[in-house]
Amino acid sequence: MRAPRFVSTIWNTKGMARWILLVGVLITAVFLLFALCAPWIAPYDFNQTKVDGVKFPKLASPSGDHWLGTNDQFYDIYSRVVWGARTAVLVVLLSIVLSAIVGVLLGLVSGYVGGWFDRITLFLMDALYSFPSLLLAIVFSFMLRERIGGGIVAAALSLTAIYIPQYYRVVRNTTVAAREATYVEAAKAIGAKPATIMRKYLFGNVVQSVPVIGTLNAADALGTLAALGFLGLGIAPNEASDWGYDLSRALDDVSAGNFAPALWPGLAIILLVTGLTLVGEGLNETLNPALRRRRLQKVTLPPRDTTDPEVVR
């Protein structure tokens, strides 16, 4: 892929798509900043319940020490939200990268090789795809919990499997179409091996829609991660801060009239999901040629030169 052209396409976007992209990038950037600089932004650690031997108050109201108050586990809500961004970004990034790698590779090979390998893979992927994704995530999370515990890697892996089919299907279908292209025939004609053809001729031309699927999936993965945490199947509270887990703990406080512990992690989930969705949709409108409308400039004809009319009969 050509980075300069890719970037300039986005830069030259106009109208609605540009605004969608801009707002999305802005929101996402704030959360990325949280994730990267959590130790400096958050006043306390995510599992810190006391400072200098003095325990935090339980369910405290916002104050100078605890800007957003504390929750029922004596955690500082502001710190939990900031650290939660790091967890969310890590899990989502890991799962998206893993599923993209597996999905693209499988799709490329399956689409190019064809035959029974293609049929079996296609069948398996379709089966995987037709399951409700949350259900699938719950099953994987259960299975992984017993083997590698409830950490960030386990959460990411249980999300990975859900998204593989999406990359697989898109890449496989574009590969099947690109396989018939003359430049692939030309590659065969110069004596390139199948692996070379896939690597040098197909890969760059079939992965172009992957960034778009990636960002759209990121939003979805974040929602699924929160749901897992909410159900208590996500990340163990002592491993990392998990917005979904905090939200589920805060439900009782809401019925008791204390909204703060639920409000802030909930808001974080909603904002980041929105941000990622906007980026995905924006990219889709910019990069997808089917949706992109090249804007033609309006022309005003200049007045004619009246100086030179020379007509000869």
């Binding site: 033609l296 400039q297 309006k298 022309v299 004809l301 004619r304």
Partner: peptide, 13 residues
Amino acid sequence: RDLRVWYGTDRGP
């Protein structure tokens, strides 16, 4: 008669 048809692009008409 002396028909002109111009259309616009990024590089100008």
